[in-house]
């Protein structure tokens, strides 16, 4: 086992996953419904927070404004990258499954928090929306994904379960 194998597998998994996600059938049957579910979840949580929000398709309306959740904003891209790294890492398959499961829950959960936060920001301080949208949340998503991978990888390494080490 060498680091080169990890590198190559990571690239292959990211490319293959990206290709599969771009297939029209997958996009329409899985990604788009997931995106709409994100919109409904976002609106439901926003209503709990006292914002008169409604989801309609992939749009979340709040008063006189709206957010459109497009395919790329459902957390799937970050999840693909994290999952590819976990699967390519030389760990027992049980540990990889644990990493993928925990990563999926964490990334999708954080992304839902992100969407709700953006609705709140758009509603109460719309001039700050670009800052939160472009800078704050992109950085946070990156930090969460890398932290998850480092935590999981350190856990696997401490248990001495890196294959080929």
């Amino acid at each position: 086992m060498s680091g080169r194998r990890f590198l190559l597998l990571f690239v292959v998994y990211v490319a293959a996953g990206g290709f599969v996600l771009s297939l029209p059938w997958v996009e329409q049957s899985l990604v788009a419904p997931w995106t709409r579910l994100n919109a409904r979840g976002t609106a439901a949580i926003a209503r709990v927070l006292g914002i008169d929000a409604e989801a309609h398709g992939a749009d979340v309306f709040y008063g006189w404004g709206s957010l459109r959740i497009v395919v790329g904003c459902n957390g799937v891209e970050a999840l693909l990258i994290l999952t590819s790294a976990v699967l390519a890492f030389p760990a027992p398959w049980r540990q990889r499954a644990l990493g993928v499961t925990a990563g999926t829950v964490a990334i999708l959960g954080v992304n839902l928090v992100r969407l709700v936060n953006l609705v709140v920001v758009a509603k109460v301080a719309p001039t700050w929306l670009p800052v939160f949208h472009v800078y704050v949340w992109q950085v946070l998503i990156v930090l969460v994904a890398v932290s998850l991978f480092l935590t999981w990888g350190t856990y696997v390494a401490r248990r001495g379960r890196i294959a080929g080490a």
């Binding site: 459109r68 904003c73 990258i81 994290l82 992109q138 890398v146």
Partner: peptide, 21 residues
């Protein structure tokens, strides 16, 4: 308020995340 499209990350940031991981 105009409708705002909210991608989770740009392609460039996604590439940066991939390299960082």
């Amino acid at each position: 308020q105009p409708s705002t499209i909210v991608p989770a990350m740009s392609t460039v940031v996604a590439a940066g995340l991939a390299l960082l991981i």
